[in-house]
C-alpha cells in the first residue's frame, strides 16, 4: 500500500489506509484512500447516512458529529485522523431503549426543521452547545449555533428547541 512518496525517511507514508473507526460505541474496520474524510467514510463506506453532506468544505455544518464529545465538521477531518477517537453520530444519540434524545424530541415539538437535511447536524451541534454551557440565552444559542446553516430557515424554532431542552437539563 505504499508508494513513491515513501522515501520520507522514517515516515510511514500511505496512500491507502487500514483503519478502525469507533462509531457510536462500535468498531468498524475499513480500508480507504488516505484523502477520505470522516464524512465520506461514514456515508459511503459505513452507510451511516444520518451525517449529511451539504458542502464538503466546512461551510454549512450539516456533517456535525461529536469527536470525543466535541462537535466538529466530519468533512474537515480525515478518516485516518479520527482513528482512536470516539465518534458519535445522530445514529448514536438515542437512549438505551432506543428512545429519542430530548433534543430530538424538542426538534419535533418545536418544528425545528422543514426539509430535514441540516437537522442531524443541527441536533448534534445543539447537543454540544448545551453541554458546553452555551445555551443560556437565545442570543447565546444563536451565536453558538451559527456554524449550522438551515436554508429552509427554521432558526427560531431550532433556538426554541435548544432553549427548552437546555432549560429542562438545568432542572
Amino acid at each position: 500500500m505504499q508508494d513513491a512518496a515513501n522515501d520520507a525517511g522514517d515516515l510511514d507514508v500511505r496512500s491507502t489506509v487500514d483503519l478502525t473507526l469507533a462509531v457510536n460505541g462500535e468498531d468498524h474496520r475499513l480500508e480507504v484512500p488516505a484523502r477520505t474524510t470522516l464524512l465520506d467514510a461514514l456515508r459511503d463506506r459505513l452507510h451511516l447516512n444520518g451525517t449529511k453532506k451539504g458542502c464538503g468544505i466546512g461551510q454549512c455544518g450539516a456533517c456535525t458529529v461529536l469527536l470525543d464529545g466535541q462537535r466538529v465538521n466530519a468533512c474537515l477531518v480525515l478518516a485516518v485522523m479520527a482513528e482512536g477517537r470516539h465518534i458519535t453520530t445522530i445514529e448514536g444519540l438515542h437512549g438505551p431503549a432506543g428512545e429519542l434524545h430530548p433534543l430530538q424530541q424538542a426538534f419535533i415539538d418545536h418544528d425545528g426543521f422543514q426539509c430535514g437535511y441540516c437537522t442531524p447536524g443541527q441536533i448534534m451541534s445543539g447537543v454540544a452547545c448545551i453541554a458546553e454551557g452555551h445555551a443560556g440565552s437565545r442570543a447565546e444559542i444563536r451565536q453558538h449555533m451559527s456554524g449550522n446553516i438551515c436554508r429552509c430557515g427554521a432558526y427560531v424554532n431550532i433556538v426554541a428547541a435548544i432553549e427548552a431542552t437546555a432549560g429542562g437539563a438545568d432542572r
Partner: peptide, 14 residues
C-alpha cells in the same frame, strides 16, 4: 419528524 431527527430519512445520494 421522527425519521428526520433520527437521521433515518433517506435522500437521493444515500
Amino acid at each position: 419528524g421522527p425519521a428526520k431527527v433520527a437521521g433515518k430519512a433517506t435522500y437521493a445520494a444515500e
